Amino acid sequence: MNPHVLTVLLISLGLGTTLTFASSHWLLAWMGLEINTLAIIPLMARRQHPRAVEATTKYFLTQATAAAMILFAATTNAWVCGQWEITHLTSPTACTIAVTALALKIGLAPAHFWMPEVLQGITLPTGLILSTWQKLAPFALIVQVAGNAHPYLLTALAICSTLVGGWGGLNQTQLRKVLAYSSIAHLGWMILVAQMAPHMTVLALATYIIMTTAAFLTLYKMNSTKTVTLASAFTKAPTLAALACLILLSLGGLPPLTGFMPKWLILQEVSNQGFSLTATVIALTALLSLYFYLRLTYAVALTFSPYTTCSTTPWRAPTSHPTLLLSATVVLATCLLPLTPSILGIVI
């Protein structure tokens, strides 16, 4: 892709997210979401492959449906209550439609069916943008709307997402689909406390973005898109393979890694609010996610490829990709748990 076109598209992504962040009016927020969608579609379709075109079409239709639902919810609320402000979504019908539309936009279960297929059809760098940056604007709206939403709706979406995210990733051999189901499960944890403690949602989202960025960049560096290719990762790049194991375990929420921090704090907050049964259910669903992360870790660390590689080992060859972002995200994805009190002080 032409560098100037790529620069325009990336600036448009930033503009759309910033516009949604800064808006208090539903029409401006809707415009920001649409700019985001239109900016990422050329990035998804640039591979000129039937799977990429199919994924782009699915993504466009899903996002267009969600945007139409958001506009319908805002218009309904303005008709009933006379308010266009995001925080004044007081009509129960309009609020339910808006939350459902935002759940469809970010891929919450049961509106998650598009996400694994879309991620499977695009490249890892574009999948990274789709899994991280594209979640920011809808989550900003969810945090503002959650106060008026029905608590049972958010709880049902959260439990369904954690269950589907853990269950759906068990039999997957494609790493992009595994990361898609991982995203669905993490989104469920974030949605659960959006009404009780919005700052916990922000903390969980930031932690998820760091860990997912590290995972995508590691797989991109190792050129791995299938589980079977992970068997030769340790032979080619032992240091990166070892770090990949830590990143996957951090995504699973295993202490003493960073991924344990948001799950621990969310379970504590949900229990303090008196929802012990809900906390128990999502803690059990986390075991499903942890299982397929351990399966990937086993493929990386305890399995060796039957074929010896004759190529020059990557750690001795000059690298062609910048590694500063990879190094920073790997450190943050594995070492932030001791700083939990300081991070809580900043967030709260």
Score class of each variant (00 low, 15 high):
residue 222 M to Q: 15
residue 18 T to V: 13
residue 20 T to C: 13
residue 113 F to S: 13
residue 261 M to P: 00
residue 150 H to F: 07
residue 151 P to N: 00
residue 6 L to S: 15
residue 41 I to Q: 07
residue 317 A to R: 14
residue 108 L to R: 08
residue 333 A to R: 08
residue 106 I to Y: 00
residue 171 N to R: 14
residue 154 L to R: 12
residue 33 L to V: 00
residue 311 S to F: 07
residue 123 T to E: 12
residue 324 L to P: 05
residue 154 L to T: 11
residue 261 M to S: 06
residue 130 L to M: 12
residue 106 I to H: 00
residue 168 G to E: 00
residue 299 A to R: 11
residue 266 I to S: 03
residue 109 A to C: 09
residue 77 N to Y: 05
residue 238 P to E: 07
residue 343 I to Y: 09
residue 113 F to E: 10
residue 132 T to K: 05
residue 180 A to S: 15
residue 142 I to L: 15
residue 115 M to V: 09
residue 335 C to K: 01
residue 9 L to A: 09
residue 167 W to H: 11
residue 326 L to P: 01
residue 252 G to R: 04
residue 144 Q to A: 11
residue 119 L to P: 03
residue 143 V to Y: 07
residue 278 T to K: 04
residue 76 T to N: 10
residue 206 A to C: 13
residue 299 A to K: 08
residue 206 A to T: 15
residue 87 T to Q: 13
residue 346 I to Q: 09
residue 55 A to P: 01
residue 176 R to G: 08
residue 310 C to M: 12
residue 98 A to G: 00
residue 300 V to Y: 08
residue 83 Q to E: 15
residue 184 I to C: 02
residue 233 A to G: 10
residue 243 L to Y: 12
residue 96 T to P: 02
residue 189 W to C: 04
residue 224 S to C: 15
residue 7 T to E: 08
residue 325 L to E: 02
residue 155 T to C: 11
residue 81 C to D: 10
residue 39 A to P: 02
residue 283 A to I: 02
residue 82 G to Y: 07
residue 154 L to I: 14
residue 179 L to Q: 00
residue 134 Q to A: 03
residue 100 T to M: 11
residue 323 T to Y: 07
residue 172 Q to D: 04
